[in-house]
Design a binder for these strands. Structure first.
Lengths: 194, 194, 194, 194
DNA sequence: GATGAATGAGACTTCATTCAT
DNA sequence: GATGAATGAAGTCTCATTCAT
């Protein structure tokens, strides 16, 4: 396997495992076993578990951007529709996982950020940047929508939309109910319409 | 010392440490040392770390109910004012901690729930119940307010207010910015006014 | 409760638990709980777990002497009959326990002696003395029988009878089969008849 | 070092320590230190202390079979001689240890079986199988001898020979007297001659 | 004499990480 | 570049024992 392939394969495994079982819930043994490579190989590509997590967050952000945001934006121009579809895509993905595993995984970025931000500023910043990378999509939506919610400026509006998504995903995880994401969808649309 | 006192003292220590450093970020050595009791004493009162966490979540929920919700409800009758003050109290507390420690801790319930819900259904349920115990306050606010946001029934409104608070606290933690809680406050008030 | 009563009650509990679960298999918590007294009370009567074990072995030896050997000797004068009945009594007791618990406990003296003799010379000697206290019964049997097995002097004969009993009880424990005791009975009778 | 070598080295250490100091008398710290490997290395080869004990019993059985039984059978064909030599080899080994350490260790299989059979059915069965693996040697002796002791069938005879060996080793341990094994030797020979 | 509560030491086990080939 | 094997540090938990009332 080519170097980059191995690396990406490890990262994909890490993304999935960290998301499914949390950072501390996965150890390097399991990770390398599931990835099908030797533990030492993992350490040749990533100097530490934290390093691996950082890289995994980066890659997950890229993939989320591609599969959730960019694909949605390619589908439609209407800002409300875009917002609705983002939530819907997220919902579908979580619904599928919930059906298969009986568990709502929540947001991969928020999860690892909340778990590690107190012990690792590095992770907190990485997660912060990952989430921030989605903001421009919400920004475009807000701009295209034309009006801002009463008393909110552009920045606040965008960050509210993010917070709303995060709150919805946290709720879906803690209540173990994918439907919480659809609640969030409606909240977001109402918020934009205010 | 009386049994209950020791127990509560351990619990208070646990609440604070888990909140400040996450569940995996605290070990039983540190916990007992900070509590000023022997490790074995902790285990005489709580069978396991998880058990301790469960009890700590319970106690934290009681105290949150008392110091945030009940105290606010005693101060004013006006629903909007109540909602505003809840956020304000939360903000003040986090602001204080942020000033002292340079870190936003986020929501103690969400934090531990997100960290452990995949590995312990018990913790997930405990956190779920803790958060649910706050819902009746939002319920009262919604009822007193008289009208529901466009297209939301009572239950959805309440759970949206919860999700909004959680989203705000997650944002404050990930952005390390207490102000995110005030953003949430305004979102909540707008949402109620819709 | 009178001092001696408490003490004896603790001892009886210890005898039963050590026999059923081995020395390391029982902790002072469980012991005091089953005895229905406070742990500190146990330590007022016995300075240590080892001390308790020593006293328990003593008491168990007295009771075994009374219920197995003396009672048998009161029943019949015939040496072979006496030997047979000793094994039979032992068998019945183990059969009963096996029916109730599904487990053969083996010999209480051998068990604890084998478990602890390498770490505590004190226990080894106590067990040795306990077993030695039964030797005079076998001695009487041998004497009354009149003849010694070919090539065995009196002392060797007695100690062989003891070893045979121990071997039988060990077998019953390791095979979890009370019948091994009856095998031992027949071996003993044959041996005496040699 | 090759995997199997390390494993066997750990096992040999375990066999010796468990035999010398009992299962509970040895902790994993000491064990790994004496074996000259890291504690974690032990756990990489054996999932738990019990697992290690099980493997150690297996290996000890193989070695006992080789060094006591097979070597004896290679030396002579005569059944009585074989029986005598088995005991003699056992005696010599214990005599040597007694000279060096001042302590009779008893039977490694019986020791650990008696210590743990109540708490671990797994160990009991492993020990049972280990001891059973020696039975065929006694069986061959009995067969070659031609006649059975009065009133004993083949199976009972074999199991009596085993019980006799166990009783002898238990006696040697509890009396701390290697000579008890020679007493057992004479008992066995007499028994066979009955 | 008895007890509720506390404790120091140490048990087993697991972790992220590195070495030697 | 990859791997089988090894490791130091730390983790959770339990034990026999003692203190203070």
């Amino acid at each position: 396997m080519k170097k980059e392939d191995t690396q990406n394969h490890i990262l994909d495994t890490a993304i999935d495992l960290f998301w499914a079982k949390s950072y501390h819930g996965v150890n390097m043994n399991e990770l390398s076993r599931v990835a099908g490579v030797n533990k030492a190989t993992v350490y040749q590509h990533f100097t530490s578990k934290e390093e691996l997590a950082v890289a995994a967050i980066h890659r997950a952000a890229e993939r989320t951007e591609e599969f959730i945001y960019q694909s949605t934006f390619a589908e439609t121009q209407d800002p409300k529709e875009r917002l609705a579809r983002i939530y819907h895509k997220v919902f579908q993905m979580h619904e599928g996982i919930f059906s298969a595993e009986g568990k709502c995984r929540g947001c991969p970025f928020v999860n690892i950020g909340v778990e590690l931000s107190t012990s690792s500023g590095r992770i907190r910043k990485t997660v912060g940047r990952a989430l921030a990378s989605f903001e421009r999509y919400y920004g475009q939506i807000v701009d295209a929508h034309g009006t801002l919610p009463n008393g909110f400026d552009r920045k606040e509006t965008v960050s509210s939309l993010m917070a709303n998504m995060n709150g919805a995903l946290v709720a879906s995880k803690l209540e173990n109910r994918p439907g919480a994401i659809l609640d969030g969808q409606r909240r977001a649309l109402q918020f934009l319409a205010m």
